[in-house]
């Protein structure tokens, strides 16, 4: 279980997280919604230990990761995967070496076994046969999918998705969502997904949270969110230009 409690983070004078509280249960898919720039990516980066909070705790299976030393953090990260909003592929490595990066660093599988594994992951994200392309030869959507293949390559128990379907066509979006669901169902993966895509959110979520103004303002099951009386939630879910979010 992941417990985020009272998380605060500022950059200079700009407070981005102002007391985030969140619980993610094992095997659950949590979707975080929220307007651009509200700190969703920053929150994910705290959960995987890339950023240190100014205040607050993040417990993963009871361990406070904000205080872990590097070796222990790395052990935890071996059980986690993150898909970055920008994909963050290594420019100097081809698709296969990108996806196999963790495997090559942390296991001693043979080259053939690695190739086989990579090809399987590429198949899963709908990019078979692209093993030897360089990231610069890929479109934005393809990069995202390679980033996803890299995130799932070590078969992590926890996956963080930062806008996995932004920039993908609707067909690819469904395919990625199905992959997301099948990872959850077949392997019991716990996941946190940040997205703007309502359709995608409601397809994969067990629960949905709304991040706004540096806090989680609402969290609940799909039905609860759909029927929420909170005007912020209503505006965001319906995608209305007028409402409490626009008044700031």
């Amino acid at each position: 279980m992941i417990i985020v409690s009272n998380l605060h983070k500022s950059f200079g004078s700009k407070a981005v997280l102002k007391g985030v509280n969140l619980k993610i249960y094992d095997g659950e898919s949590l979707v975080i919604l929220g307007p651009s720039g509200c700190g969703k990516s920053v929150l994910l980066k705290h959960i995987i230990g890339l950023m240190k909070p100014d205040k607050g705790q993040i417990l993963i299976d009871g361990e406070d990761i904000t205080k872990l030393e590097q070796t222990r953090m790395d052990e935890l990260r071996m059980r986690m995967g993150m898909l970055f909003q920008s994909a963050a592929l290594f420019d100097s490595l081809n698709v296969e070496d990108n996806i196999a990066f963790g495997i090559n660093r942390h296991t001693s599988l043979s080259k053939r076994a690695v190739h086989h594994l990579v090809s399987e992951k590429l198949e899963m994200v709908g990019l078979p046969g692209t093993n030897y392309l360089m990231p610069s030869e890929l479109s934005g959507g393809m990069r995202k999918r390679v980033g996803l293949a890299r995130a799932i390559a070590m078969e992590p128990e926890i996956i963080l998705y930062d806008e996995p379907t932004t920039g993908l066509d609707p067909i690819m979006t469904s395919a990625i969502d199905e992959l997301h669901l099948s990872l959850k169902e077949k392997l019991g993966v716990t996941s946190i997904m940040v997205t703007h895509d309502m359709k995608s959110a409601f397809r994969v979520a067990d629960r949905v949270a709304l991040h706004y103004g540096g806090q989680i303002v609402e969290i609940g099951s799909k039905e609860e969110i759909m029927n929420s009386q909170n005007p912020l939630v209503q505006q965001f879910v319906r995608g209305e230009a007028q409402g409490p979010m626009t008044q700031l």
């Binding site: 990260r77 993150m82 970055f84 890299r150």
Partner: peptide, 10 residues
């Protein structure tokens, strides 16, 4: 964010 990506890959 490639440096961050390295960190997430332990």
């Amino acid at each position: 964010e490639q440096i961050d990506a390295l960190d997430t890959l332990a």
